[in-house]
Design a protein around this nucleic acid. Structure first.
Length: 275
DNA sequence: GATAATGTTGGTCG
DNA sequence: ACGACCAACATTAT
């Protein structure tokens, strides 16, 4: 579910909620396989009494810098964090609860159980993921270097976290629409001006997502909600994603939906022609 | 009631 | 190097 803008919103709200500096007093694990590299016993023993020194985002990962360890969380499809202070029975999808030393606790919910928590000694896990698209390092030249030698189709490339980190299904479709590029076009067939348009589109689409505090699609609980339980506003700004059959905002042609790389893919057959 | 689809990623097997 | 397919799961929509 959450892509770069949603994860960024979550991390920002964690800072607004002043989680930094708090100590982890107790852990309850409701679903053991949330823990990617530890037994529940080892995890609880290791994390207990560590302080949350910092929280940041890298790609779609949330990175908690603790006193002695690094806790890296990937929310995958339905992972969510909530901050609570009232002791209640666990929600049916609650997988982990972290009690903090100010009376609050972090509740981690994950309906589909795909999310993973890694408790590690370093951030080495993050080294293999690609460039941050909203950082100064993401220049047009850097983007061109990544595209060099690529023969695959552009959408699967955008979804591959080893190149540009944080782009998922929603923002990939939105960026390709903004750049007027058909998602099945081959990377090596893109023209100079198309690459530049796509570069700009990736940045603007992600920035808009962050400014609108993320995209929340349906109303169900499986949807994206930030730490405070707020929904995002970016769903109203989407041009193509889950808008098949509706008119393209640019030319009014009906948006089409196809499957590409096993993912639902939305585009305008008129604005985004496949040569 | 069965089947497909869901915002993710990692693996296998051609 | 790539794509096709499956796997991990629960829920909602068709």
């Amino acid at each position: 579910m959450p892509e770069l803008p949603e994860v960024e919103t979550i991390v920002r709200e964690m800072h607004e909620s002043q989680l930094r500096g708090l100590k982890i007093q107790k852990v309850i694990i409701f679903w053991n396989r949330t823990l990617a590299n530890q037994s529940p016993e080892a995890f609880a023993k290791q994390i207990k009494n560590q302080t949350i020194e910092d929280i940041k985002r890298r790609g779609k990962f949330i990175v908690f810098t603790l006193t002695q360890s690094t806790l890296i969380v990937h929310l995958r499809m339905t992972g969510k964090f909530f901050i609570d202070s009232k002791e209640t029975p666990p929600h049916p999808h609650e997988r982990v609860r972290l009690y903090l030393n100010d009376g609050r606790f972090l509740r981690y919910e994950d309906q589909r159980k795909f999310g993973k928590w890694y408790l590690l000694e370093s951030e080495a896990l993050l080294e293999k993921i690609g460039i941050e698209p909203l950082s100064p390092e993401f220049t047009l030249d850097a983007f061109k270097d990544l595209l060099k030698g690529q023969k695959r189709r552009i959408k699967p490339f955008l979804l591959d976290q080893h190149y540009v980190a944080g782009v998922g299904n929603i923002y990939a479709d939105e960026a390709l629409w903004a750049a007027k590029i058909h998602p099945a076009r081959t990377v090596d067939g893109l023209k100079e001006n198309e690459i530049k348009a796509l570069y700009k589109a990736i940045i603007s689409v992600l920035q808009a997502g962050v400014e609108n505090t993320g995209t929340s699609l349906g109303a169900a609980r499986a949807n994206y909600y930030s730490v405070s339980g707020r929904r995002g506003n970016n769903q109203d700004k989407l041009k193509v994603f889950r808008r098949d059959g509706l008119p393209c905002p640019r030319c009014h042609t009906a948006i089409q939906k196809i499957t590409l790389a096993q993912r639902g893919t939305h585009f305008c057959p008129n604005c985004q022609k496949h040569p």
